[in-house]
Design a protein around this nucleic acid. Structure first.
Ligand SMILES: [Mn+2]
Ligand SMILES: [Mn+2]
Ligand SMILES: [Zn+2]
Ligand SMILES: [Zn+2]
Lengths: 125, 125
DNA sequence: ATTCTAATGCAACAATGTTGCAAAAGTAAT
DNA sequence: ATTACTTTTGCAACATTGTTGCATTAGAAT
């Protein structure tokens, strides 16, 4: 069996993401860590945190990948919430309360969704 | 003033995308063109087609950027439709008829949306 | 045919992400 | 505390995707 280990890198990265009120990109995390560990390690830690269900991944409209803490996810990711990407302050936030509704025409089996709105956030409006 | 010109590359790329019933990525287009023009030219043609409002850009859940023809866009892109990304056949399609509804909590100004569902398409179900 | 300039090719670069492998460091057992 | 096991890391090397500068090519209007 595989036994996960607690390392400085993992603890610090997890703390950064979960504490933050905006989603963070790999490069933003790297900047915050200030040389605590290698770039590759950050990628691998993020991968582990995703598998654990601690964080979730957001692909922004501009293609930038960001990470945010999970709140109502226990082991299985169930993200049916919207993300908002501010074009001015560049902040990407989870709108956990906003669940979109839609109706698919034919036989589709949905297992994942990625819904990002972009524009101006309340602070920048 | 700038006067657009019709070139072999542009004509071919536009035809490929508009004709296709699935969204195409840069690399898929490059493969189809089979050396007709340089990689960079493809990027620049895609940029032009986007500005012209002939095609629209889709950032998939996996981060892959795809391009599809516009149908109800006249100069201004207005894409309020959903995209579906099949995890089996990898096809990304426009579901032009499906318009999601949602209600944002605070003061947000939305100018763009990117909504992609992934799972199994009717063919793969 | 001449002229103007949009469009292209090429090389060089940057950003992001992945992989292999040896070294380092958790963790549990002794 | 020491040992043994295996996860995790660092480093180098690589792949993919996208951008930029500049000289050259080639539409299209005259
Ligand atoms: Mn979220
Ligand atoms: Mn579409
Ligand atoms: Zn903002
Ligand atoms: Zn399919």
């Amino acid at each position: 069996m595989k036994t996960a280990r607690n390392t400085a890198a993992k603890t610090e990265i997890q703390d950064l993401i979960v504490t933050s009120n905006v989603a963070l990109s790999h490069s933003e995390i790297q900047k915050s860590l200030d040389g605590l560990c290698d770039r590759v390690t950050i990628y691998r830690v993020l991968e582990r945190l995703l598998e654990e269900g601690t964080i979730h991944k957001i692909v922004n409209v501009d293609g930038v990948v960001k990470y945010a803490g999970c709140h109502s996810c226990s082991k299985k990711h169930s993200h049916n919430h919207i993300h908002f990407s501010c074009q001015k302050c560049k902040a990407v936030t989870c709108l956990e309360d906003v669940e979109p509704s839609y109706k698919l025409p034919k036989n589709y089996k949905v297992s994942e969704m990625n819904f990002t709105l972009s524009g101006l956030c309340p602070q920048c409006l």
